[in-house]
Simulated scan of single mutants.
Amino acid sequence: MTAPLARRYRRLLFCYPRAHRRDELLATLLEAASPGRDRPTAREAANLIRHGLRARLGRPASRTVTTWAVLATIISGIFAAAFAARAGWETAEPLPRTAQTRAMLAELLPGQEFRYIEDAPAMFTIYGGPLRWAAVNDLLFGDGNEYSLSSVGGIVNGIPVRPPQETLDLVRQRLRETGWTAYRPMVNDTSTTLVARRGNTTLTVEVHFVPTVYSGPSMLAEDSIFLTAAFQRATPPAVYPSAVFGGIAGAVVAFLLFGWASRRTVGRHPTRWAVTTLFGATMTLWWAPTLIAVPMMAKHHLDEPHPSWHPMWEWLWQPTCSLLFVAGGGCALLCLALATLPRPRAEAVPTPAAS
Score class of each variant (00 low, 15 high):
F245N: 01
L334Y: 04
W180P: 00
R115H: 09
H51R: 14
A103R: 14
P163V: 11
T276Q: 09
D223L: 08
S242P: 03
W180M: 02
T66A: 05
P4F: 06
M186H: 04
S215P: 02
W286Q: 00
A85T: 09
V266M: 03
A337S: 10
L12S: 06
P40E: 10
G153V: 12
S34C: 06
P307S: 05
A234N: 07
I225P: 08
E118Q: 15
Y116I: 08
R8F: 06
L5G: 02
L12P: 02
G158M: 12
P350D: 06
T192I: 15
S215L: 08
L131H: 05
E206F: 08
A45L: 10
A19P: 01
A196Y: 05
P185N: 13
T190D: 11
T2C: 03
L5W: 05
A99Y: 06
S148F: 12
W89I: 11
R7P: 01
A3V: 11
A32F: 06
Q232N: 11
C321W: 09
A85S: 15
G329I: 10
A106M: 03
R343P: 00
S215M: 14
Q112W: 06
R343E: 00
A337K: 10
E90M: 14
V152E: 01
W260D: 01
R56D: 00
T193E: 14
P217L: 09
A249Y: 12
G179Y: 08
L95M: 10
S224Y: 11
R162I: 13
P40S: 13
I75V: 11
T181M: 04
H20K: 13
E304M: 12
I155V: 15
C331D: 00
E31P: 01
A103C: 04
G216N: 14
T228C: 11
I225N: 10
W180H: 04
M296P: 00
Y116T: 11
P4N: 04
G128D: 10
S218H: 15
R18Q: 07
P110M: 13
R102N: 05
E146A: 05
A196Q: 04
H300Y: 13
G154L: 07
R50N: 02
Y116G: 02
R56K: 13
E347Q: 13
P185L: 13
N157C: 11
A353V: 12
A32N: 04
A288M: 14
L131W: 09
F141V: 14
A354G: 06
G259I: 12
T98P: 01
R37P: 01
R174T: 09
G259Y: 08
